[in-house]
Design a protein around this nucleic acid. Structure first.
Lengths: 146, 146
DNA sequence: TATTGACCTCAAGTTGGCTTGAACTTTTAG
DNA sequence: CTAAAAGTTCAAGCCAACTTGAGGTCAATA
């Protein structure tokens, strides 16, 4: 069992394309040593980082945010399960928030179908405030008086 | 009370930038008449369409998908509350699905913090199957044997 | 009447998270 | 030994959903 892995080995084990791995390294989310040839050699524990990255992405975190989190890991030793658990705790809150936002949304939605509005001033649906979307640029706020 | 509104009036009432409104029109999600000058005149009921669009976007639908939905509205009359309700029903399911995906995710997450893994073969976290993310391209599947 | 400001079109730019391609080197299998 | 597979860098491309800018017209107000 080798101590380091090639980019393709990492790619196969993580399911993340090697181009993406290079991109992550460029962005500073992971790092590698180099063989004499210039080829990357990844220590096994980057797989944990990659697991973290993948999972955080499913929660809608940007690579920037993820990097910020990863940077909090200790550098004096390979992060332990406990070190990871600290970061992971944030997720629970994230997920909980997302769930309750959706539940609020669902409530208003049902109400709006009930009242048949989609156009009434009184309808809260048009200004849910909840910032559910994380991608895209334009303004999303619905304002009074249709 | 005028029957049609300028693009700026629509923009103010909907909270959607006029550049976005032009873009929506170009994409066929809304339509306008033109004043003699070539300026757009929107009938009031586009506000309902815009409400629909905004809301659907919070659920992660693409403009393409939203257009497909909007195209199902009757064209022989200005859509009624009932017409809209038909489309809106889909949302309830969407939201419900999203909620239960998140709940599954939360469950695995808690389990993984518990077991301190983030790296074990047995950990289902790495292959949640749930396609939560809708943006982005790369593969997201975590494969065995870390 | 003049000047703002609202409107128009069309092309190009932006952001995030990558992918693709070119041009080249290194490693591995037969 | 040679061919194919795997690796490298760097620049450019892609997608969605817009925004921005240039260059020009039209409308409302003092």
């Amino acid at each position: 069992m080798e101590t380091t892995l090639t980019i393709n080995q990492i790619s196969r084990r993580s399911g993340i394309a090697s181009s993406a791995l290079r991109y992550y390294e460029e962005r500073g989310l992971i790092s590698s040593e180099r063989a004499g040839s210039g080829h990357r050699r990844f220590p096994r524990h980057v797989l944990r980082r990659l697991a973290f990255i993948s999972f955080a992405q499913t929660l809608g975190m940007t690579l920037e945010e993820i990097k910020t989190e990863l940077d909090k890991l200790p550098t004096d030793h390979v992060p332990t399960g406990d070190d990871w658990a600290v970061l992971s705790e944030k997720w629970t809150h994230r997920v909980d928030e997302q769930i309750s936002q959706l539940q609020r949304l669902r409530k208003t939605l049902t109400a709006c179908i009930g009242c048949g509005c989609l156009s009434l001033k009184s309808c809260k649906m048009f200004n849910p405030k909840d910032e559910l979307r994380q991608r895209g640029t334009g303004p999303r706020k619905w304002i009074e008086d249709i």
